[in-house]
Design a protein around this nucleic acid. Structure first.
Lengths: 212, 212
DNA sequence: TAGATTGTTAATCGATTAACAATC
DNA sequence: TAGATTGTTAATCGATTAACAATC
């Protein structure tokens, strides 16, 4: 268990949000204990993989019984950082940016959109519910004001690199990038690319295989 | 090269859209030949991996020279099915659905949103540019009318499974799913999950590691 | 105790990388 | 031909799965 030397596989981390969802549902309907088999089926993986994943975080289950839903849920929340609320900046108040700002599912995951940014003067001052639109030049000031943690890039591809540099400059070290470009940032900054077209092109590829 | 027995790795397919982008840019600025080294740098992978990926599709390069940009571009387009235009249905004319409908980047990838669907009577008949909003009950009819290929699911989680079943029922065999649920569909139907919260929670996890 | 299910090991599978012969 | 760069092989790395001892 020498956990100072165990590296958590990326693949494991990427499945934790799915476990979180399944556990939330079980918790919601009053289930208190769940077996790896049952949970794995709901997620669509093998029970072996689920147990292996959870084992990286120590003995979270009870042999002969299963996993305690609320305990496991709390653990996964902790691992994913859902206890400290994450505050999102969204840069780019276009269709995508405002759609993200309006998404209702963030809060139950400990995430909150606090501010939108744009360069278009006509958009500055708009409000989407509680969320205001600020000029990009206010990024630094508003980052402090709202304790922003994550910079979401929802600007056109041509502007993305420049925006990323501004985000890094003012101290963000997590970037959620929706622009279809590879961002050049310092190694210490973590970038997650959410390139939607990639997904649909993979679908398109599969269609060619079906219809060939 | 017995290609009838070679399986293309999923990881390879998922990188093709990135290669497509880089090649498009090179082509746009008039570059005609590119080395694996140069291209790999732009994508952010090793040249070895790029050559390996391309090798699954036969000898696409010229030893001692590199790859012909427009030839490789044409090949990748073919593999990704970008020659036959893919027509998208978007089910759910909420914030996400309409944001997707308005996204300008699809067309240059051979993709086109042709119709939105919803159950909310007040939305039926709306137009987003050329794209109309139809009642979900018209899915079958409009699928034929517009030759729809891909069903995009942009409805709340609670409705997603039901919507997926309708899509399968009327003959879609590709589903682009934005709802945070695992869809149960026949094996022949290809589902691509685009669960945005997963991405941002992985970011959140990395923040906990930084600030610990 | 008997039954059940975890946590872990070892085997397998798949993907990435390094290296270099083939060849333009 | 000499130089360059591909295509491919073999080694490595990482992730998944099967199996079962540990243990509730």
């Amino acid at each position: 268990m020498k956990d100072e030397f165990v590296v958590i596989p990326k693949a494991t981390i990427s499945r934790l949000p799915l476990y979180f969802r399944v556990l939330s549902e079980l918790d919601h309907v009053g289930v208190t204990i769940v077996s790896s088999e049952e949970m794995a089926t709901k997620v669509g993986i093998t029970s072996s993989q689920l147990r292996k994943d959870l084992s990286y975080f120590g003995g979270l289950g009870i042999r002969g019984t299963g996993y305690d839903v609320s305990y496991l849920l709390a653990k996964i929340k902790e691992i994913l950082g859902m206890n400290q609320r994450r505050r999102l900046a969204i840069i780019g108040a276009g269709k995508l940016g405002t759609a993200l700002a309006g998404y209702g599912g963030f809060l139950q995951h400990g995430l909150e959109v606090k501010a939108l940014f744009d360069i278009d003067e006509t958009k500055i001052g708009w409000k989407f519910g509680e969320i205001g639109v600020y000029h990009i030049s206010e990024l630094k000031r508003r980052k402090k004001e709202f304790s922003l943690d994550i910079a979401t890039i929802a600007v056109p591809a041509a502007a993305a690199q420049q925006v990323a540099e501004m985000a890094v400059e003012v101290g963000f070290n997590a970037i959620w990038n929706f622009a279809p470009v590879r961002l050049e940032v310092p190694e210490s900054v973590y970038v997650r690319n959410e390139d939607l077209v990639v997904g649909v092109l993979i679908l398109s590829h599969h269609l060619t295989r079906i219809n060939q």
